[in-house]
Design a protein around this nucleic acid. Structure first.
Lengths: 102, 102
DNA sequence: TCAATATTTAGACGATTATCTAACTATCTA
DNA sequence: TAGATAGTTAGATAATCGTCTAAATATTGA
């Protein structure tokens, strides 16, 4: 979770996620959406990948990136719990309801 | 939104939010939950406050901090949209569904 | 008004991060 | 197999971040 939160802290990475929410894209296509050197985008992609937020799959010369929504579900659960919208038994009681997240 | 995402990138700050999700607390009470110098916690609190994630209210010598759930709602909306769970008319179409967030 | 308590502000320092250019690896095609 | 294309890795650098100690501000109560 920590890696995911840190990955989301950068606006370029969030923009990449928004692009991938619309359709899968190759590294080059993603890079073309930014006025930034390709290696910088590549680095952002590897950060997102390490955080579990995206998947990659090689297709010939291209590497196709796609969203991995699994971690997004966990993040949303975290927000629901913070916002006091958790379901009755998902958060029993006590101070350490977060232990597993960090 | 950018400030909120950056504020969430630090584990200490997320822990503070989790504490405040349970009850309002003074700066001192919050600091007592961590093995970190008080000024460091104070700095984290001001970051969270600048991000709109918490509110503060002076009560005599103490300053009472509380969660501000407004920004949390916006963040959750962002996640819903990314995860493709948005409601039909909240996100019309096109590439720039995110324009207002950054 | 003075001392004590609660908290923040200021300034410094080491660690992390975002970006760049240059060089490398992998794949395709002629 | 050589050249072109797609993408990553390496290494450097400037900026940002998290933490600390010391000093300042605000409030209370004697």
């Amino acid at each position: 979770m920590n890696g995911a939160f840190k990955a989301l802290a950068d606006p370029t990475r969030r923009k990449i996620l928004q692009l991938l929410a619309q359709r899968d894209m190759t590294a080059g296509e993603i890079a073309d959406c930014f006025s930034m050197a390709k290696p910088s985008i590549s680095h952002h992609l590897s950060t997102l990948r390490a955080a579990g937020l995206i998947d990659d799959e090689r297709h010939g010369q291209n590497i196709l990136y796609s969203l991995n929504t699994t971690v997004f579900q966990q993040l949303m659960q975290w927000f629901f719990e913070i916002s006091g919208m958790e379901s009755k038994d998902s958060v029993p009681e006590g101070v350490n309801r977060d232990e597993k997240n960090e």
